[in-house]
Design a protein around this nucleic acid. Structure first.
Lengths: 110, 110
DNA sequence: ATTTAATATTGCAATATTACGATATATAAA
DNA sequence: TTTATATATCGTAATATTGCAATATTAAAT
């Protein structure tokens, strides 16, 4: 079938899965890291940073934007893409929570 | 083409992408959360927790295991699946690092 | 008004993912 | 040894993803 049925899961579970899925490609990780390191966020040069053609990069950017990981604003001839802090705060607190719980369980198995 | 070319990215980028991809499905998030909350880790009842058939759950477990997010050991008639703490430590430190950097940048754009 | 530059969209081929029924495997119980 | 139980694998259909060439769009520059 290939289609994920999101109805059966909680909003939170779907939210985390959506964010994780968007980060589930090395090109998109590379894009995030580039946006993180660059001074300004006029980011037309992302294409030059990646081993991918321009339409492919554009598509990856679209997916990151749809997932809420980046924001994009038109600025004249270029687009200003930059990281959406909120999304990463969500991820950090989610994984922080998990590692915290794991710390408490401290190997009662395997 | 549908095939991701991992060669062009760093090991770290591929590692994070692999972990994120494995978490990029709500069923697999639900599995992780169930493993986190359950007392023991004899987890044959994961199937009952999810709205999916047994082969589908087995497949999701395999993916989580391949990505290194869970460990599985045969225990008599059942399988003991449990979370691999290391993987979550990697994710937490990665996202912690990112949110730290974002904190420092503090909105010089968008 | 034309040209240039930056980005997006479309269309398409190759491959991957999701899901499940049927079946295999392997241990435990009878 | 047969039967029951738990999990994995196979085969397959439906859908999604990845990637790019060709083309469209849009605003700046000439």
């Amino acid at each position: 079938m290939g289609a994920t049925n999101t109805e059966h899961y909680s909003d939170k579970q779907n939210q985390i899965a959506t964010l994780a899925k968007a980060l589930g490609h090395p090109a998109r990780i590379a894009i995030m890291e580039y946006l993180l390191n660059v001074e300004t966020c006029i980011c037309g040069d992302i294409v030059n940073e990646l081993p991918l053609a321009q339409p492919t990069v554009s598509q990856h950017l679209k997916e990151l934007k749809n997932a809420g990981l980046i924001k994009g604003e038109i600025e004249g001839n270029t687009i200003c893409y930059c990281i959406n802090e909120k999304a990463f705060n969500i991820l950090q607190s989610y994984f922080g929570n998990i590692t915290g719980k794991l710390e408490m369980k401290k190997s009662n198995c395997c």
